[in-house]
Design a protein around this nucleic acid. Structure first.
Lengths: 226, 226
DNA sequence: CCGTCAGGTTAACGATGTCAATCTGAGCTC
DNA sequence: GAGCTCAGATTGACATCGTTAACCTGACGG
């Protein structure tokens, strides 16, 4: 913890990099706020002097970026785990897993998604993660539940889920329903069915009341036993 | 600008509060990053010494909070402007206006929505703004396009739009479509129709391919001339 | 004309990110 | 085993930040 770290042996310098990263992650998770992520605090926790951090990270931003890469990796793992079966249902499982992870690691999610990204370009880990989202969507396009460009559709779905969890995290004082799981479900279904539906609709809509009646009919049609 | 401010006359102390707020807003808008919002920079811009800010704001957080209140007010104004006519269409207009404002004022939006809110409770201006969202949704429940608790539905719709603009702002490097207006439209339609649809669907869904066929039929049904 | 006190200012503190200069000891050579 | 070397650190300092305490000042009522 505060105990001084024994100096690494020759050739094992990079070990410190891992230890610093771990210290940073622990600090984030335990403190519950990114303000606690000070170079001094991280270094102290790693049992090392403050400027030693600069041996492995060019600046604080780079350290934070490295922490983020791990989170992207975690999301990738989650997506891989939840694939398989009907693509539409699989996509829903992925979205729910994403939301659950974000809500379970609010500080990390905040750092990942709500920080002005200084580095230009999409980090490879993030690109890989997004690629998985796009693939899952593409599978739905294949079965024709979705239509359109998988990348654009994926961005839309991601927007919906991210919006929900990021609002939950950043604006916790709003009158959220008590059951977060149910809210996530609502959002995921909204996004899924909305995406499936909107591309099929005519440009000119009927007035609200007529639309409502049509939707009722459609719902009843789907509910018929098959 | 940098010119020293003439001392306010007796009883006109609060004038400085306004000038400081203006200086802070200008600084945010011009610099393009919240990092530029330093007490020293704000004070300099207001033509006043740094600790003078403390005469009107208990700390930096309070200053930022005050800036946010203005943005909430702006959203309220936007909503009021876009009401009227068919509730479903009005809601869409409000959502589009919200998104447009956010994208036109990215730094302000970031400060408003992506900053850990220190003050407990929802600020009145934010509550008022949310009340307007809920009202607009309630009107849609009235015409039966939407079903369920207006507050929960409003949170869902807000999530979708917020998710889109906040991702656009925080992750600009992702492969967003060139036409932002079109993307916003996609999201708004997705959220609107998804919300209208999902509560009417049976718990057990048909497999993707059958669902796709049903949606096609429904789309064609809506497109029939009436 | 003079005292008061609203409306400021000056000077300083501790914390933070960052950098230049310095130390140190593990492992090679002889 | 003595001595050299340089990877792997440390020390000390700087500028900037938010914040506080102590002090100044000049417009206005008496």
């Amino acid at each position: 913890m505060t105990t001084r770290r024994v100096r690494a042996r020759r050739g094992e310098g990079p070990l410190l990099r891992e230890e610093i990263l771990r210290a940073a992650e622990d600090l984030l998770a335990e403190s519950g706020t990114e303000d606690a992520l000070t170079l001094r605090a991280v270094a102290l926790r790693a049992g090392v002097s403050t400027p030693s951090v600069y041996l492995h990270f060019t600046d604080k931003e780079a350290l934070v970026e490295a922490v983020c890469l791990r989170v992207w990796g975690e999301f990738s793992r989650l997506f891989t785990e939840n694939l398989g079966g009907d693509p539409f249902l699989a996509l829903g499982r992925c979205a729910r897993a994403y939301a659950r992870f974000a809500l379970d690691h609010p500080v990390q999610y905040r750092v990942l998604m709500m920080r002005p990204s200084a580095a230009p370009g999409v980090p490879p880990a993030a690109a890989e993660c997004f690629r998985q989202m796009v693939n899952a969507v593409a599978a739905c396009v294949e079965t024709r539940v979705f239509e359109g460009d998988p990348e654009e559709v994926a961005l839309g779905l991601w927007s919906a889920v991210h919006g929900c969890v990021s609002l939950l995290i950043a604006q916790p004082e709003f009158p959220w329903p008590r059951d977060r799981e149910a809210l996530i479900n609502q959002i995921v279904r909204m996004a899924g069915f909305g995406t499936a539906l909107y591309s099929r609709l005519p440009a000119k809509l009927p007035p609200s009341r007529e639309l409502a009646a049509d939707l009722d009919t459609f719902g009843a049609h789907l509910a018929r036993d098959r």
